[in-house]
Structures are given as structure tokens and as C-alpha cells.
């Protein structure tokens, strides 16, 4: 299944958002997620099924003014 993760195209074999995060090295990380522009809370990631072409954003704390 082809997805966009933070702007990069990926070809992955995962079913849910939670599985994608684990497979991509975000296990245990302090991150927030959005799929196709909609916020997906951490508690909903395991039940959030991904589909071909989904646009996924994984954001973390960064410097800001």
C-alpha cells in the first residue's frame, strides 16, 4: 500500500496508523498524528485503518517562538 508520510512516499504493509508508527521508528515517541488533514488522537490510532494514498502527518515538539 502506498502512503505519504510527512511528505515522503512509502510502500508499506501495515493495516493501522498504530502499526505504521511502530514500523517507521516512532514506537514510544511523543508525537501527534493527522491523516488526510484530520487529527487522529493517540487513543484512536490502533483502530484507525489506513487506505491507499492516505496523507499522514507525524509531528513532534520543536523549537518555536
Amino acid at each position: 500500500m502506498k502512503l505519504q508520510l510527512n511528505g515522503a512516499t512509502l510502500d508499506v504493509d501495515v493495516a493501522t496508523l498504530d502499526e505504521l508508527l511502530t514500523a517507521q521508528g516512532f514506537g514510544g515517541a511523543k508525537v501527534a498524528t493527522a491523516v488526510n488533514g484530520q487529527f487522529v488522537p493517540a487513543s484512536a490510532r490502533a483502530d484507525h485503518t489506513l487506505a491507499e494514498g492516505d496523507l499522514i502527518e507525524v509531528l513532534a515538539p520543536m523549537q518555536g517562538g
Binding site: 521508528g25 513532534a60 515538539p61
Partner: peptide, 12 residues
Amino acid sequence: SLRRESGQTRAG
């Protein structure tokens, strides 16, 4: 702020 995180560097 929040910015894109890398699963490799995990800078955030």
C-alpha cells in the same frame, strides 16, 4: 511548536 518528526533521528 510542532513540526514533522523523523522516525530515524527523533529530534523532537
